[in-house]
Design a protein around this nucleic acid. Sequence first.
DNA 1: GTCTTAACTTGACTCGTTCCAGATAAGAGC
DNA 2: GCTCTTATCTGGAACGAGTCAAGTTAAGAC
Lengths: 133, 133
Amino acid sequence: MTADRLRAAGLRVTRPRLALLDALDASPHATVDDLAGAVRIAAGSVSTQAVYDALEAFVAAGLARHVEPAGSPARFETRVGDNHHHVVCRACGATADVDCAVGRRPCLTPKESNGFVVDEAEVTYWGTCPRCQ
Amino acid sequence: MTADRLRAAGLRVTRPRLALLDALDASPHATVDDLAGAVRIAAGSVSTQAVYDALEAFVAAGLARHVEPAGSPARFETRVGDNHHHVVCRACGATADVDCAVGRRPCLTPKESNGFVVDEAEVTYWGTCPRCQ
DNA sequence: GTCTTAACTTGACTCGTTCCAGATAAGAGC
DNA sequence: GCTCTTATCTGGAACGAGTCAAGTTAAGAC
């Protein structure tokens, strides 16, 4: 149950957060705006700030993941822990999941990393979605 | 020469653009702010808008590439055409180039692309730079 | 030297996000 | 159940990055 996931993550169970987590499950890759809209339909008036706070709390608790393709506002998804990747449509911004062949981070390692210690490889595929083709 | 590259790209040769292209060569992955600063030192007073316009023109002409790691303002570089990738420091945002084994786009192809036509795979390695370790 | 128009300036404005101070309510402990 | 702590929420101001628009300047074709 949604409430249990919140409790298990050490978060308080509130109307806004329940609605947000459900919205997040229902529409992956939604923007903060989309999510705030969904939350307000489900839970009545909720401040935008509360949505931002909750999303940050979810990410910190490992319940959600923050994705941010270039030129797009932040998007969130509850599919965490499998280090999958994304395809983004250049035309409309639609985003879809792409499974990672490796599954665990960093999944790819550069041969020459300039002294950086790499812990994650984030792959974003750019292209055109079926509808925009 | 810098002026020839502008001319070859079909762009007019102006003080701001010469200075910008030089700044871009000198400091890859610089932000618009950094670049505007460098341009003003080299070419006197130049509006921020002119820098944005010129950068957009450079990108459109293939002289520069636009990079935008999550949570960071836009960065630009003149290394174009070899589809290389980047390592970004989570702590300080420092960015370095990482050669792409394949070299040409899309360089990686997802096995399941959800109907998207993929033309580029952008890889961002996240980690910690030598100085922040 | 003229003339067209790319390039520049100035300034207002949007968007996504963050910061703050104070009010509210979840849930631990009695 | 009642209290109390503090996580969470509210409202509103503020911010950085970037865009838009109208008018001026100057590069370079002729």
